[in-house]
Design a binder for these strands. Structure first.
Lengths: 290, 290
DNA sequence: TTGTGTGAAACCGTTCACAGCA
DNA sequence: TGCTGTGAACGGTTTCACACAA
């Protein structure tokens, strides 16, 4: 199914490129810090440095919002904070629910960065009856049975899933059915959602794997290049080796049964007409110090 | 400073595009699931659906690794699992340290997805003396004083920072000085690191802000378009409004003091020659159910 | 003179469409 | 015939370089 082109999903929302939207929170954070120090204006160069991007990119990004700077001077900090906040929709209140109050859910509930950005934890939901009523971060945990009523009573449109992988899809469906249209998924699963629902995922194990890839490259290079400039790198200790148990030889072409269990010919591959809505420019991250 | 072009940083490591590297863990997860069900082969269409991407992209991605499929048939599951694992560097053991054992640090320490991918939590480190010796996820927390010796004794090259924002940069510098060359940063701060060190960031507050942006757009559209097709959307409850306290008028051009505190003219903007190493295609996610 | 704002170029990633192999 | 592998077209993002406003 779903062979033809699926949704349409414009990559630029309201004229602002996704890549730019993903960086606005970064600028906002840097600007907020400057604002707290009562710095009146910043140049694109300074702000870019504080946000970790280059100045050309920053100026291009701001140009999509309008001409908020002053040539020869820079940007007015307070004014920009307001403009970006408005653009991101942070001038209004966003009630969110967190489903799955385990270690991670509790960490998220305790995150202070919420309130300061217009996000309010409306409820904590868990499937464990023993958790019901227990206070976490000052909020009493509620049982999954009440999910639907919590969503509609509070007008929640953003949900955070911090459940085990197995429960994620079901929780997702209930959230969506109840009216949630934006989901932040921490479970290591590909969620299938209908058109019009945004899903962003945060998956630690994937982040580590990407780091491992680059780390491996460095190790290889290190051995290869030696005549290169003497980098002031700290002494890299020898890495304890370990090899995958089964090197798995190239599968024979002769239609023999390569798989362990020959039975179950066409196992039901989980179909998933998932909509990929994570913006380009991968970054985007986030979280809380305990 | 740093006006000219800085580092060089090739966007394609060893011929494999960053965007592809970021998706390999996704494929690996889907393949592992198939492997556990003893499914011998998959087509690009099936695997793509399970991983949440489209088949053309998947085939293109695999083509960078080599020709591991069989035309007219598909891909051998076990063989692909091995090839991708090797490419990602998961055939070796990666000891990691987690610094900052608060709510989040504990959640990370308890994450089961680590071991299965070749990552091993070598140590948990916290600055609070009261935490020292306490077991978290079966591992005794160690004091920050021992950071350097832990890194070098265990040959750690990957560090996870889960400290409050204020401590992150300092911890980062100590990790790097001790030999860590890859960092996963959960603190809401832009880390400044020397060339050759990779940093990936995970920031919940930013993810939520991006969702809020799209959510806001939906609300606006909803009001604008009405003659459109009748979407089978659930009844969207009215959103409680809230407006930013200070609308902040466009700053006057007349060089008056717009900022609250006229003093501190040129406050020291945090300089940061940060290297942006988050791969393109922003996705990349990851984490653990509690 | 300084630093924003922005066309134009370069680059990267995705999608298309189909040749070619099993 | 079926599905992989891939050149080519396309679209988005970043970088460059400079006109122009304060």
């Amino acid at each position: 199914m779903a062979t033809g082109r699926t949704h349409r999903l414009p990559t630029r929302s309201r004229g602002i490129p996704e890549a730019t939207v993903a960086r606005l929170p970064l600028y906002l954070r840097a600007l907020t810090a400057l604002s707290e120090r009562s710095v009146p204006t910043v140049s694109s160069e300074e702000l870019a440095a504080a946000a970790g991007v280059n100045s050309a990119k920053l100026r291009k990004d701001f140009s999509y919002l309008g001409s908020y700077g002053t040539r020869g001077v820079g940007y007015d900090v307070e004014y920009l904070v307001y403009q970006i906040s408005r653009e991101l929709g942070l001038t209004q209140d966003w009630p969110v629910v967190i489903v799955g109050i385990g270690n991670l859910g509790a960490a998220l509930a305790n995150y202070g960065g919420f309130a300061s950005r217009g996000f309010r934890v409306a409820a904590l939901i868990d499937a464990d009856p023993a958790m019901a009523g227990k206070p976490v971060a000052g909020i009493a945990v509620q049982h999954t049975d009440e999910l639907e009523s919590i969503i509609s009573d509070n007008g929640v449109s953003i949900g955070v899933i911090a459940t085990p992988a197995g429960a994620a899809q079901q929780v997702c469906e209930r959230l969506v059915a109840a009216g949630v249209t934006s989901i932040l998924n921490f479970a290591p699963t590909v969620l299938s959602v209908p058109d019009g629902v945004d899903v962003r995922k945060v998956d630690l194990s994937i982040e580590l794997q990407i780091l491992a890839f680059h780390e491996q490259r460095k190790a290889g290079e290190e051995a290869a290049q030696d005549a290169a400039q003497a980098g002031a790198t700290a002494p890299a200790p020898a890495r304890p080796g370990r090899v995958l148990p089964d090197p798995a030889a190239r599968p024979t072409t002769a239609g023999a049964t390569t798989g362990p269990a020959p039975a179950a010919a066409t196992a039901p591959v989980t179909s998933a007409d998932v909509r990929d809505n994570q913006g380009p420019d991968g970054d985007v991250p986030a979280v809380m110090p305990a």
